[in-house]
């Protein structure tokens, strides 16, 4: 588990992260989302021990990760700005990682390279941007680290490769109970991969939820009743949003879907449709409750 408690990080006099608290459970795929400059990359670097926080603590499996090689054996990082040794092939990079990471699996590395159709003996400098990212991801995954940190993971990857990466990530979690932290400024990208999401805004975690819970506990209902009605008609429900247009009302509700369905059917609706919400929509409504305009948070 990763426990981040009251972490503050300043660059010069500007606080990029301020009193940030967060818990990432073992074996989860945690998506960290936020606008450009929100502090996502900084947070990853703090957890990885590249930077040191000015205040607060960061514990990985109960120990501080900064300058701690024992715990860092369990951590691998793929930054947004990739680095490879000049003149090295992918295989040579793997050999380097193998010399540093005790559990590096060379066979698995080669297997992944075959899967991604990357020539391991070719110099990385000749790879395209997307291929470099694939290479970096493969090498990181092959370390068999318990914690993998991917910054702007899918940047430069085509849709086919993205799906492949997502598949491998999920397999890793399922097989090895790996904890994965992904950052992106795009919710849609993280939606079908992550099981937890955190929204970073103005140096802190604004919003943090389990994705399944988010999706199942909140949904959109379109309903039309005979006769006139207003919001009071549904007073027993937890309403996030009520929008009436003509005779059709769109409700965003929170709660147990089955119970709500039974409740609404008792009103003999003319129209009753349950529509699943996208993650983005869920976030928008949650933000509205908190008093934020979602566009200003993400974009």
């Amino acid at each position: 588990m990763i426990e981040i408690t009251n972490v503050t990080k300043r660059f010069d006099k500007t606080a990029v992260l301020e009193h940030l608290n967060c818990k990432i459970e073992k074996g989860s795929i945690y998506g960290l989302v936020g606008a450009n400059g929100a502090g996502k990359s900084t947070l990853l670097r703090l957890i990885m021990g590249i930077y040191k926080q000015d205040e607060g603590t960061i514990l990985v499996d109960g120990v501080e990760s900064f300058d701690n090689p024992l715990i860092k054996q369990k951590m691998a990082f793929v930054p947004d700005d990739l680095f490879f040794y000049s003149g090295y092939s992918l295989y040579e990079m793997a050999v380097f990682y193998q010399s540093i990471y005790d559990n590096f699996d060379m066979d698995y590395f080669k297997e992944l390279c075959d899967l991604f159709r990357l020539d391991i003996n070719r110099k990385v400098s000749t790879f395209s941007k997307g291929m470099k990212r694939q290479g970096a991801l493969i090498v990181a995954i092959a370390t068999k680290a318990s914690y993998l940190f991917f910054d702007e993971t899918f940047d430069g990857l085509d849709p086919v490769i993205r799906n492949l990466v997502k598949k491998i990530i999920c397999e890793s979690v399922a097989k090895d109970n790996t904890t994965i932290i992904l950052t992106s400024h795009n919710l849609r990208e993280l939606e079908d991969t992550c099981d937890h999401l955190g929204l970073l805004y103005k140096g802190g975690i604004l919003f943090e939820r389990d994705v399944d819970t988010l999706k199942t506990e909140m949904f959109k209902v379109q309903i039309s009743l005979s006769g006139d009605f207003d919001e009071a008609e549904f007073k027993n429900l937890e309403i996030m949003s009520f929008k009436k247009k003509g005779s059709v009302t769109t409700l965003i509700l929170k709660g147990n879907k089955e119970k709500i369905k039974v409740y609404l059917e008792k009103k003999n609706p003319i129209i009753l449709d349950f529509i699943p919400l996208t993650l983005e929509e869920i976030f928008i409504y949650e933000m509205e409750v908190l008093g934020y305009e979602f566009e200003s948070v993400i974009l």
Binding site: P69, M75, P79, D81, L82, F83, Y101
Partner: peptide, 17 residues
């Protein structure tokens, strides 16, 4: 360089090492 700093300092090696 930032990219190489990230790479090296992310490795499971003590800074003193």
């Amino acid at each position: 360089r930032k990219d190489s700093v990230d790479f090296i300092t992310a490795l499971p090696l003590k800074r003193s090492t």
